[in-house]
């Protein structure tokens, strides 16, 4: 009922949708950086959308499974092996007890999500299983996974009978430059036209100060209007705040709940995954769209998800006989492991 961590990788943490409802108590949200890849990982193994997953960064962990389970990896892709054989991304796979899954360097994107059918069973803290390394709470003892950790899984009954047919297309993440949609932030008007134009015309570079809290960007210096101190107010996932030095910062999953810098724009929700998959040195251009347009994109994404759900389900119905065979084989494995 567990996974043993043989090597932790660069930064591997347990995450789910985070603690959105706890912000009023000053407790940061945390949660996954790429909500779309997170959703697809759980879809592939037939989990609830809220089930906790592993978020892996740049170099993944080595895992030994102590029970049979169905596993899928989404988000960034690269090299992964199961007992030395290539392991596919974006595809539900049966991993047997004792097998070793090694996720190596991620080359297409930065952050991958590993879901197991049933989910990881670390205790919920303030309503979520997400790791907050800042507060050293949640997830697995509030810290990234390291060699020797034994991570509990939900009972082995969470078996996905049609796993052989559950797969999705692999996305290609940008290697150099992206354009992301943003909506005007709450202090957009305070910046004045010249700064607003500079913001949408300039190309910004992700600096080395880029982590789960936020990315500091360099490029055009955005002059902040001297309207006195802004009283602290709520922050946003993808909020682009501008401190006095004029270099914007994109606030991400591990941001503080409140902040005192003016926010010029906020990344459109559907484009947050693009930001999550960026690495230092890559460049961003911002495209300003209306709130209404951004909300239409949310609707389009929901429709796309509905379609993907149907495809994942339908594939299994079309291929009934292999599925049955797979089920029987898997039952044999399950039986032998009890």
């Amino acid at each position: 009922m567990s996974v043993t961590i043989l090597a932790g990788g660069l930064l591997t943490t347990v995450q789910d949708a985070g603690r959105v409802t706890q912000q009023a108590s000053g407790f940061g949200v945390a949660g996954v950086m790429d909500p779309w890849a997170f959703r697809l990982a759980n879809l592939l193994v037939d989990n609830s959308p809220q089930a906790a997953v592993l978020e892996m960064t740049s170099v993944g962990p080595d895992l030994q499974f102590n029970q049979d389970c169905v596993v899928a990896i989404t988000g960034a892709t690269g090299q992964a092996t199961l007992n030395g054989q290539p392991f596919p991304f974006y595809q539900a796979q049966l991993v047997l007890r004792g097998q070793r899954l090694a996720i190596q360097r991620l080359t297409n994107g930065v952050r991958s999500y590993l879901a197991v059918a049933g989910g990881f069973m670390v205790p919920k803290v303030m309503g979520s299983r997400s790791t907050s390394t800042r507060y050293q709470l949640g997830g697995f003892h509030g810290r990234p996974l390291q060699s020797g950790d034994v991570l509990p899984l939900k009972s082995s009954t969470a078996y996905v009978s049609d796993y052989g047919n559950r797969h999705l297309p692999i996305p290609t993440y940008a290697a150099a430059q992206i354009t992301v949609n943003v909506t005007p932030g709450p202090q957009f008007d305070q910046f004045g036209q010249a700064v607003q134009q500079a913001f949408t015309q300039a190309t910004f570079t992700v600096s080395n100060a880029a982590d789960r809290m936020g990315y500091r960007l360099t490029g055009a210096k955005l002059k902040v209007a001297q309207t006195g101190n802004l009283l602290s107010e709520g922050t946003f996932f993808g909020g682009i705040q501008v401190p006095q030095n004029g270099d914007p910062i994109i606030l991400l999953a591990d941001r503080q709940t409140t902040g005192g810098y003016p926010v010029i724009a906020v990344i459109a929700s559907v484009d947050l995954p693009l930001i999550a998959q960026l690495q230092p040195g890559m460049t961003i251009k911002f495209k300003l769209i209306s709130i209404a347009a951004a909300q239409q994109l949310i609707e389009a994404q929901r429709n796309k998800l509905t379609l993907l759900k149907q495809q994942v389900g339908q594939a299994s119905e079309q291929d009934l006989s292999p599925r049955l065979a797979a089920t029987r084989v898997a039952r044999l494995f399950n039986g032998s492991s009890r």
């Binding site: 909506t183 005007p184 932030g185 009283l231 107010e233 709520g234 929700s269 951004a294 909300q295």
Partner: peptide, 16 residues
């Protein structure tokens, strides 16, 4: 003031 595509700010006069 719409603050993001999923957030609305109710903003009162700028004082404590």
């Amino acid at each position: 003031i719409p603050a993001s595509d999923q957030a609305l700010n109710v903003t009162f006069p700028n004082r404590i």
